[in-house]
């Protein structure tokens, strides 16, 4: 029998383990955020200040190009890359949103075919789609770079959109067809008996019920495109197509220590996926575990 003493010890052990995991998971995020609110002087304090003693929004203002002109000139001198962050934010948003939309436009019909149309070789086709995810991206980036170069698409957001669709589409189709299959077809049957056409059934019966699945697929596609780095760094040359991860990583080459700006760029880059993950936690967890377990 479990005694009261054992129960207390057990709870204490669980909570200590939880605290260890919490620290490991949370400390790096905290330190990034804290640094982004520090001045250059405080960032270089030895020993480090765990809490910013004089928190400032100056790093964020600099990114947006607002605030004291003298300080902006100083920042331009110290780390010119800081002024690439804002254009990169726009590029990142455009690319990720367009990829998410294309995923839905292309993924929904394909997923519908897998879920509702009888065809003997449907499973092999789906397997081929999923198999493309096994390919290492570095294998595709080499020929794709040459193809995009020949098409004159290097350094355009369009090249990135095309590349990201390749990575995200197979999973989107898979997720959506699995979701469609969980929706009972009886509703569609009765709509058909009432004389609705296939398009009307899809538009008015299936899709309204499939909104959660579609949202989840769109969010996962958005997040994957937002975070991607290899293609982004290979395809982009100027601020015209550089995305946030590329700009955030571009500080690395410079000699001086600019982690106040780097961490600010990091927070801006991490914020959208972070918020999405928090808001849609349940859906994402379900989507991921379903994707991994049944796939």
């Amino acid at each position: 029998m479990i005694t009261a003493r054992q129960r207390v010890l057990r709870q204490a052990f669980l909570m200590l383990s939880a605290l260890a995991f919490f620290t490991f998971i949370f400390a790096p995020i905290y330190w990034m955020t804290a640094t982004s609110f520090m001045t250059e002087k405080e960032m270089l304090a030895i020993p480090p200040h765990f809490f910013p003693s004089e928190p400032t929004l100056r790093n964020y203002q600099t990114v947006l190009g607002i605030g004291d002109p003298e300080f902006l000139a100083f920042a331009r001198n110290r780390a010119p890359a800081v002024f690439d962050i804002f254009p990169a934010l726009k590029n990142s948003l455009i690319v990720a949103i367009v990829v998410a939309i294309i995923n839905l436009l292309v993924g929904i019909p394909a997923a519908y075919a897998f879920a509702r149309i009888t065809y003997r070789r449907a499973l092999p086709v789906l397997t081929i789609y999923l198999a493309t995810r096994m390919l290492p991206p570095i294998m595709l980036v080499v020929p794709m770079f040459l193809i995009m170069r020949n098409l004159g698409l290097i350094d355009t957001p369009f090249a990135l959109v095309m590349a990201y669709c390749v990575f995200t589409l197979p999973f989107t189709v898979w997720l959506l067809q699995a979701y469609f299959k969980t929706i009972p077809a009886e509703l569609e049957d009765s709509a058909f008996i009432d004389g609705a056409t296939r398009w009307q059934i899809v538009r008015h019966v299936l899709l309204p019920l499939a909104v959660p699945g579609c949202t989840c697929a769109a969010i996962l596609a958005f997040m994957a495109s937002w975070s991607e780095f290899l293609f982004a760094v290979v395809f982009s040359k100027t601020a015209a197509s550089k995305t946030l991860p590329v700009v955030a990583a571009s500080f690395v080459d410079t000699a001086s220590i600019q982690f106040d700006y780097v961490m600010t760029a990091g927070v801006i880059t991490a914020l959208p996926p972070f918020l999405l993950a928090l808001l849609f936690q349940r859906w994402i967890v379900n989507g991921l575990s379903a994707g991994a377990l049944k796939g």
Partner: peptide, 25 residues
């Protein structure tokens, strides 16, 4: 909290550790 590291773009992950492990500060 658990989901946070999964949502963080790998580049940002790298940058954070670069700063944590910086050789002087």
């Amino acid at each position: 909290v658990m989901l946070i590291p999964w949502a963080i773009p790998p580049v940002v992950n790298g940058l954070i550790w670069q700063w944590i492990l910086e050789g002087r500060y």
